[in-house]
Write a protein that binds this DNA or RNA. Structure first.
Length: 446
RNA sequence: GGCGGGUUGCCCGAGUGGUCAAUGGGAGCGGACUGUAAAUCCGCCGGCUUAGCCUACGAAGGUUCAAACCCUUCACCCGCCA
């Protein structure tokens, strides 16, 4: 087990993410709107108040990074931890090979072993950042189900696991029946629930894990595990699921308006992009996001809700969400950097008035293109295309539609070339497409 | 294994020899309005050396002056029968 220092520990006061204490975990999840289904609520509540409960949630390596939507279950583990319980984050090194049939209509593409191994490594590193791995009864654990699944032989699997699963019940699971009504599914994906059940049993035996949490499309897989636990070990466990949420646009949580995911990995989604994403969250969704994706307490979230209703233009809730998210996912230092960048690029002051250090800092996050000092500068169209990864046609179109700006001034012609006086401090050009896509052109200092 | 239906741009989906870079809807992008929001309206939405040219309608061949559209083979998907 690896112990990582809390990335927020060294941060100066004020910039650190808010971590409100959790007294009653079920009540906390409830007001956050995170409770979809549970097995017997009263027994669960009693167990949770009687002492430390060990619980787990699985994460399959479906991408090279977690995305913002994955934070809902991951943060739920943390909430349980704050409430005095012990979370286990499980990386699906084995289940990633099989593919969960739930929540989709078609067969998954199988991943090769190298891809899975790489992704599991990255997944583990990311999950470590959000839980407290210090020693003690509530210290988090990180496991990979490949550890106990890989050594299993086919015969053992069929005798020891498969024997306990009635096919008629497996067929009845929503995740399976939905697929049967659609295009069907392979035996491979049909078997997924067995592997997930095996995980639950294994974690129960190793760590006394008695609760599995997950998005509500996991309900069938989780309860399959509970049946298995009962049949094999005569043990009782619990299931708790979170609602599947979509935003006001019908998008999955954490998708930008462009449809792309907001990744946790700074290389895949820059802190600036994440900050801007949060700042632009729809008024109707911001309360939900604050509840699910931050640890801000009830009183404060409700105050921010009221702010949103009364003074939407201030976007206090969005600002808070943006700060919290960047602080949690990245660092408090990043919060200050992206705030400075946002203020400079969207602020009212003229770019030309900005001192060179502020300008350089503001532009650090933006895509950048460097041109040689001597010789002619490329056209604005070429610079936009290169810096923003557009086709020439797209870049030309942007200019023709009046959606391209050089130092906040509209570019009039698609043959425009920056002039000498356009270079801010002799070194920078700020190009913008539309309202929010900013890039910088630099040339070496003379 | 047999018979039938299908495979069109980011997605859905029209088109069944020239007038097709391809109707329509959704998504996306830009503009106006605003609060870097929503709604609404307008424009755009394959690429390029942009009044033109190139590449595209599952893949490869063929017929034709001309093919997304006709023919052949292959691949995949969906029904029905065995």
């Amino acid at each position: 087990m690896t112990h990582t220092p809390d990335p927020h520990a060294a941060a100066p006061e004020g910039a650190r993410p808010t971590i409100a204490p959790v007294v009653d975990i079920l009540a906390d999840l409830e007001w956050r709107g995170m409770l979809a289904l549970t097995t017997d609520r009263e027994t669960l509540a009693r167990d949770l108040s009687a002492g430390v409960v060990t619980l787990y949630c699985g994460f399959d390596p479906t991408a090279d990074s977690l995305h913002v939507g994955n934070l809902v279950p991951l943060f739920a583990l943390r909430r349980f931890q704050l409430g005095g319980h012990r979370p286990i984050a499980l990386a699906g090194g084995a289940t990633g090979f099989i593919g969960d049939p739930g929540g989709r209509t078609t067969e998954r593409q199988l991943m090769d072993a190298d891809t899975i191994a790489r992704r599991v490594t990255r997944l583990r590193a990311q999950m470590q950042r959000f839980l407290d791995f210090s020693d003690g009864p509530t210290g988090a654990l990180l496991v990979d189900n490949l550890e106990w699944t890989a050594p299993l032989t086919v015969i053992d699997f069929l005798r020891d696991v498969g024997k306990h699963f009635p096919v008629n019940q497996m067929l009845a699971r929503d995740s399976v029946s939905a697929r049967l009504e659609g295009g069907g599914l392979s035996f491979t994906e049909f078997s997924y629930q067995l592997l997930q059940s095996l995980d639950f049993l294994e974690l129960h035996r190793r760590f006394g894990c008695t609760l599995q949490v997950g998005a509500t499309d996991q309900w069938g897989n989780i309860t399959a595990g509970l049946d298995y636990l009962r049949r094999v070990d005569q043990a009782a466990g619990h299931a708790l699921t979170f609602p599947l949420l979509t935003d006001a646009q019908g998008q999955k949580l954490g998708k930008s308006t462009g449809g792309g995911s907001m990744w946790i990995d700074a290389e895949m989604t820059s802190p600036y992009a994440l900050y801007q994403f949060a700042l632009n969250v729809d008024d109707r969704d911001v309360g939900t996001y604050l509840r699910l994706l931050t640890f801000v307490g009830k009183a404060e979230v409700e105050a921010l809700d009221a702010e949103t209703t009364e003074r939407p233009q201030a976007r206090a809730a969005q600002r808070r969400l943006a700060e919290e998210l960047v602080a949690l996912i990245h660092t408090p230092d990043e919060v200050r950097r992206v705030q400075a960048a946002s203020a400079a690029l969207f602020g009212s002051g003229s770019l030309a008035d900005l001192d060179v250090h502020s300008l350089a800092a503001a532009l650090a996050e933006a895509p950048s293109v460097t041109v040689p000092d001597a010789g002619g500068c490329p056209t604005v169209v070429d610079l936009l295309a290169e810096g923003l990864g557009l086709s020439k046609s797209d870049a030309r179109r942007a200019v023709r539609e009046g959606g391209a700006y050089l130092n906040n001034a509209k570019v009039a012609s698609d043959s425009a070339v920056p002039e000498e006086q356009d270079w801010l401090h002799g070194r920078y050009l700020v190009l913008r497409r539309g309202k929010r896509t900013v890039m910088v052109v630099q040339r070496s200092a003379s």
